[in-house]
């Protein structure tokens, strides 16, 4: 349980949560930190920091791309932890680490979670670690005061939704559609029904992510969800920009639009 997350959730009132995602080390280490700071200035309630992996099976083309660039820039879990402690000098929003199991195995789960807590991280999301495999991870994370956020999917039955709710700390992450990150599908009635069902079943708040690409989609999701996660869309904006200044201003502008809309 992270105090920063708990305080943020307690103070939010009726505000919906804006949660941008950035890959650490993309486009460069320093610029990824600039992007995070700009996002916080635009009112991000939390930030997800992507830890790049060579074989990101839950990710679509944009995050695959940003991960590859980050790896070419020699981004490691050590750099991710350095990013967290650098950011902690100036920002106070919760920082959630998102990445895959294998780099954590290589680092050693115990040491990594201890170091992450020391650096000032607040929680973790590991898309290839479903609740069934998360027993030791969960107990070590708990012992360091780190939140574990598990994903629910449209294919999770009621029993699993309850199990995921029970093992998640502070909030749950709802995958909006069956698919990988950034899948550009329109959200329809089916998504509404699913999110409504989650609202009824979950005891904790939840944020919705995967494929949120416009103010319209963010509004639709936050009719039921407590917030939205935006990742691939931001990577796309950074990719299109001709300079790092332009990247920051595009990302800031987009987040401003969403902040106003939700």
């Amino acid at each position: 349980m992270s105090k920063r997350i708990a305080d943020m959730l307690a103070d939010r009132g009726t505000r919906k949560l804006l949660v941008p995602f950035f890959t650490v080390g993309y486009p460069t280490f320093k610029r990824s930190l600039d992007l995070v700071r700009a996002a916080v200035d635009e009112g991000a309630d939390m930030v997800e920091l992507g830890m790049p992996f060579s074989d990101p099976m839950a990710d679509g083309p944009q995050i695959q791309f940003s991960s590859q660039v980050a790896l070419k820039n020699d981004t490691t879990l050590k750099s991710v932890l350095k990013a967290v402690s650098d950011l902690r000098q100036t920002i106070n929003v919760p920082l959630i680490l998102m990445g895959y199991v294998n780099p954590i195995v290589a680092y050693s789960e115990k040491r990594f979670l201890a170091d992450a807590a020391n650096a000032g991280a607040d929680g973790l999301i590991i898309p290839d670690l479903p609740v069934d495999e998360a027993k030791s991870f969960k107990s070590v994370a708990d012992s360091h005061g780190l939140s574990t956020i598990f994903l629910v999917s449209p294919t999770s039955n009621k029993e699993r939704v309850e199990q995921i709710d029970g093992l998640s700390t502070d909030f749950v992450y709802a995958v909006t559609v069956t698919g990988v990150t950034g899948s550009g599908r329109k959200f329809g009635r089916e998504t509404d029904d699913y999110l409504k069902r989650l609202k009824q079943t979950l005891r904790q708040p939840y944020v919705a992510g995967f494929g949120v690409s416009s103010a319209e989609s963010a509004c639709r999701l936050t009719r039921y969800a407590d917030g939205v996660v935006i990742g691939s869309k931001l990577i796309g904006l950074i990719r299109e920009a001709k300079s790092s200044r332009e990247a920051v201003s595009r990302v800031a502008g987009f987040l401003r639009t969403i902040r106003r809309a939700i």
Partner: peptide
Amino acid sequence: KKGRFGPYGGRYVPETVIYA
């Protein structure tokens, strides 16, 4: 029952495919 061969195996996959 959990798909383990000793310590090996398991299901390290996104939640979406667990039901499948």
